Simulated scan of single mutants.
Amino acid sequence: MNLTLALPIGADSKLVQSVETVFTESELDRFAEELNRDGICVIRGLFDRDLIDRWKVAFDALFQERQQRPGGLAPRGQARCYATLPWVAPFADPAVYSNPIIRGVLNRVFFQEYKLVQLAADIPLQGSQYQEIHRDFRPLFSDQIVTPLYALAVNFSLVEVTEANGPFEMARGTHVMSREEGLVKIHAGEIPMEQFYMQPGDVMIRSPLALHRGTPNLTPQPRPMIVMGYVMHWLHTQKVDLTLPRAYYESLSPEIQELLRCRVVDQLADSEVETYINFAY
């Protein structure tokens, strides 16, 4: 399990350590600054490759089973689907969803309590197309009032993300613009749609209000991108949910229990229909 360490290395500097990777407090400040300014930051090499490999083996088995089950996957357009992950090993890992580096960044940009409300995978397959440029959330009030970071998506891929297999594409800074202004600047070439390539173990934190789209996967292999959704405690999230087995939930510390907005059941169902509703704004 990951550890958080605060060790003095200078007059006013500290280390924050995930088991595999050490970051300074100033680096976490920089990630938070990028997130506020650009709507995105990328933390390179946060997760160990062995962890990603374990997730990939488990995901491949899950995906194969879900493909055979009616309603096991939610469609997200041509050759693109979505799967909520079950709260079993290796996915139910607080070293991932309550990782001290990720939470160190979230704590710097969320100014109230926040909740984890989503653990899933977005999976473009061969034959997928460019999505329309969109947002995942509406602004809190209107496009004329800048919305603070009240929801964030944390993504990491189970495979290398290249130009060929459907990289995430986003326009930096559009999370603080009206949708119309952002689209005008994108179409005029003032703000590029930037593709984000990732190695296994890299982690992306992004604002779902930034204008973005999925791109085509031209390879024969699926490109599973894990998404963990965190929102301010007052935000209602009817389109996603977490279901945890009671024995697992009760084994967690009170701090981690407080992080999770979830339904607790005596036993997970063997098969559930994927109920994700695809919102795009």
Results as ranks from 00 to 15, higher is better:
Glu65Lys: 15
Ala74Asp: 01
Ala83Trp: 03
Met225Cys: 10
Ile52Asn: 04
Leu149Glu: 01
Trp234Arg: 08
Asn36Lys: 11
Ile145Asp: 01
Pro216Glu: 05
Gln68Asp: 11
Met204Lys: 11
Met204Trp: 01
Glu65Leu: 15
Asp143Trp: 05
Val96Met: 09
Arg206Phe: 01
Ile133Asn: 01
Gln267Gly: 06
Ala188Pro: 07
Asn217Met: 03
Phe31Met: 07
Val264Asn: 04
Val88Met: 10
Ala32Asn: 01
Leu211Val: 04
Leu152Gly: 03
Asp202Cys: 01
Ala58Leu: 06
Asp93Pro: 05
Gly72Leu: 10
Glu181Gln: 14
Val176Cys: 10
Leu209Ser: 03
Tyr249Phe: 15
Leu209Asn: 00
Pro8Gly: 10
Gly45Gln: 11
Val88Ile: 14
Tyr281Cys: 10
Ala83Met: 14
Pro124Lys: 06
Ile191Asp: 00
Met198Cys: 09
Pro75Cys: 11
Val109Cys: 06
His236Trp: 15
Phe137Glu: 08
Gln238Ala: 14
Tyr197His: 13
Tyr97Val: 00
Pro192Ala: 07
Gly189Glu: 03
Met198Ala: 09
Asp29His: 11
Asn99Tyr: 00
Pro208Met: 02
Ala89Lys: 06
Asp136Asn: 04
Leu242Lys: 07
Pro167Asn: 02
Glu113Val: 05
Gly214Ser: 05
Leu235Cys: 08
Leu62Gln: 08
Leu119Asp: 06
Asp12Thr: 14
Arg37Thr: 12
